[in-house]
């Protein structure tokens, strides 16, 4: 599966990259929201994992942009954020996020969740 990771924190980004590559996915990295949007257009990934608070464009805007730009192609979005407050989670889901993982996150758990989307795609 082709996965785009949008995350401005280096260590988390690297950890995710290594992990997902080892799980056999193709990984595209974006270090801010703007880069993420242009790379989504360029590579059209099968899954997007995004932080919320990033420079230029927030993760919530990325969800909205994906929903608006690709209404017929379903690109699942996993939000990965340190802000696990109810409000934020609700807002993310309302905008169309498919999953929400709070930081600190367990890489093992992430693998399992990503696999679920992989299986859904296979169907």
């Amino acid at each position: 599966m082709k996965i785009l990771i949008a995350e401005d924190e280096e260590i988390t980004l690297k950890t995710l990259e290594l992990r997902l590559k080892r799980d056999g996915h193709e990984v595209i990295l974006a270090r801010d929201g703007r880069e993420a949007l242009s790379k989504i257009e360029e590579h059209s990934p099968d899954l997007v994992i995004s932080d919320i608070m990033m420079p230029y464009v927030s993760g919530l805007e990325i969800i909205a942009a994906i929903k608006e730009n690709y209404p017929d192609r379903k690109i699942p979005i996993i939000i990965l954020s340190g802000m696990g407050q109810e409000d934020t989670v609700l807002e993310a889901f309302q905008l169309g996020a498919d999953d929400f993982i709070t930081k600190p996150f367990s890489p093992n758990e992430l693998t399992v969740r990503v696999r679920r989307f992989d299986m859904m795609k296979a169907k």
Partner: peptide, 8 residues
């Protein structure tokens, strides 16, 4: 600072 962004 981000603790502030989402705090009610």
């Amino acid at each position: 600072y981000r603790a502030l962004a989402s705090s009610s």
